[in-house]
């Protein structure tokens, strides 16, 4: 299984993702944003960080970088794409995922562990989780407040495209367990073809019990070819 991690000036979770992928024996390559060709990839990860210093809007400049043209082409050909945190913001800015990520409702940068429910495991990214499984994952963002229009929310719900929702330790979904004001507690969504996942929490930070937990590992293992 070949993977690529895209690296921008300001990316800071790229190496963590690489560690997670290599732990699962992915053959991983790091790809600098100025490259015009992608190595052969079954999975492309756009990692977290502050690409281009979050200038203009988070992810806006990265979305127009040379390598992103190739990522968009690969995405349209069905390649698996995972955008985490700033990677999610970049996917939104490319238009590969719909909606917008606004400033956190309380205007504070959030860096904390939160509980997230796997609302649907019927997709390639979550097949090693159970539906309704509760994960403890880390978030670290300033713009994670997902927003979209009513038609798109309906499309997301009707097609089971919302895969992660913020919840309480025992899985209750409500405003009080919503860290950033995200619409319907949304923490991660798929595109309609289900080959692109964007999520604000960081699964790559949860791959080892020694430093955190391993709630994130099943996301990466789900992507391995069986």
């Amino acid at each position: 299984m070949n993977s690529s991690v895209i690296v921008f000036p300001g990316s800071n979770c790229d190496r963590d993702v690489a560690v997670a992928l290599e732990k699962l024996q992915f053959k991983n390559k790091m790809v600098w944003h100025k490259e015009t060709e992608l190595p052969k990839s079954d999975l492309i990860v756009i990692p977290g960080g502050f690409s281009y210093g979050d200038y203009l809007r988070s992810g806006a400049i990265a979305a127009k970088s040379k390598i992103l043209n190739e990522v968009v082409k690969a995405a349209k050909n069905g390649c698996l794409i995972l955008g985490i945190c700033n990677g999610f913001q970049i996917l939104i800015e490319t238009g590969l995922l719909k909606g917008a990520l606004l400033k956190n409702k309380k205007l504070k940068f959030l860096s904390e562990d939160v509980y997230v429910k796997v609302t649907n495991n019927n997709n390639k990214f979550c097949k090693n989780y159970n539906t309704d499984q509760i994960l403890k994952l880390n978030i670290a963002h300033n713009e994670g407040n997902y927003f979209t229009d009513n038609n798109h929310i309906k499309e997301l719900e009707d097609n089971n495209l919302i895969v992660f929702k913020y919840c309480s330790i025992d899985g209750k979904i409500g405003n009080e367990f919503n860290p950033n004001g995200s619409l319907n507690n949304i923490a991660g969504i798929l595109n309609k073809e289900k080959n692109i996942l964007g999520m604000m929490p960081h699964p790559e930070r949860m791959i080892d019990n020694i430093i955190s937990n391993d709630d994130g590992i099943a996301l990466f293992s789900s992507l391995l070819k069986q």
Binding site: L56, R57, K64, A100, F147, D149
Partner: peptide, 8 residues
């Protein structure tokens, strides 16, 4: 194309 996010 770049400066504005027309959704918001």
């Amino acid at each position: 194309k770049l400066l504005v996010n027309l959704i918001i």
